[in-house]
Design a protein around this nucleic acid. Structure first.
Lengths: 123, 123, 123, 123
DNA sequence: GTGGTCTAGACCACG
DNA sequence: GTGGTCTAGACCACC
């Protein structure tokens, strides 16, 4: 079962996009694998304190990317191939990593200060 | 005059919030100082390719936070005190930095790999 | 045994409501009489290609309207009195007939053209 | 401006489909013409007593059929060509007319009784 | 219990 | 004022 333990909602970014990103991060990190079971709409919506519909939207978009397989009345599962995993990892590194570094850079700190920030927040 | 040279619009986040964040990042980084002149609504809307109403909304909210003073004419100026600057810097470090580090961490890489990513993207 | 030969499922309207309407139409048309046996849930679900739960829901609502009596066994029977039959007939004539006529009228045809349409489609 | 004067909501059928059908009926009947202005989401939603989003959904689907042209911030207009009008008229006659006649037929009345029902409800 | 869809309300960007 | 989108809640059909 895919975990949302470390997932924290951020304000100002659409929730369904945050959910999609969390799952893709799991794929890139290797913690989400092919065949893994997804939490049901109701379970996850209760866990995150959002509407089931918001989960539905995230899952639906992932299904349109062929990363999820879901059938009415049954549970949903990850559907991952190696090329897809690679593509997602690359996408995240190119986009998310870049924009995260940019955010740090814009705070007006030095690279060394950024390093120590990372050490501070990494655990 | 406050610069928007490095400003790039991101999809999915309200534009007026991105403008506010850009200015606050400048405050934290020290590139935006008390008394600095803001681009007029008209000019900035043309520069960013965005509706003037959207700029107006950002400026209005900054004004409500007392970070901007719009004098009788069209021009607006930053109105910063040391405590306000500190407060904003702290807010950005606690939120943006933390979430940026978290994004890096979730990519499934080691801290060392994160360091080299930063070096790669910093310039 | 109540017949579902001419029954065709329409998209966009809840199936259980279509089933209820089919039976009420039969009552109004006189083809469904007091004491008639209803197909079992299992048989009807197979016949219509629909989940047994959906049939169950239709039957349950009809039972709550006292149009059906489910005896201890699996079989269900129509339970119709003259006043109930009249009430249903009136309801259908007032609603379905009126809306059907309205549909024809809104097609932008004359009443005479509507007549010939009816002759065309009646058999 | 397209009229919704004679429009009455029916229970059990999705509202957005009823709105689409009403407009298509107007096209087939010739009362809705190319270039006609559509009521805005807010106006029509207030008129029909439904949520603006429901109107939005109907309009969006019509736009995907290229029957409507809408631009953000501006009004929406019908965009009709002769072939499209013909196609819609044919579609309505084949489907709606047929099903309306079928509804009448299922009430267990004779064709002559159907004729008199039409005369009764036509005006 | 599961996923899918319809309606509702609030907010965003644009003219 | 306009259309577009995000989140919320209820209901449907299926397992």
């Amino acid at each position: 079962m895919i975990s949302f333990d470390s997932f924290i909602l951020t304000d100002g970014i659409p929730i369904y996009l945050q959910i999609i990103r969390h799952i893709k991060q799991g794929i890139a990190a290797g913690t989400v694998k092919d065949g893994d079971e997804l939490p049901s709409r109701r379970v996850l919506s209760a866990l995150l304190g959002v509407n089931p519909n918001t989960i539905q939207k995230a899952y639906k978009l992932l299904e349109e990317e062929s990363l999820i397989q879901s059938h009415s009345g049954a549970k949903s599962y990850m559907s991952l191939t190696f090329p897809k995993i690679q593509e997602i990892s690359k996408e995240l590194l190119e986009n998310d990593a870049k924009s995260a570094v940019n955010t740090l850079k814009k705070l007006g700190i030095t690279m060394e200060e950024a390093f120590s920030l990372i050490e501070k927040y990494w655990n």
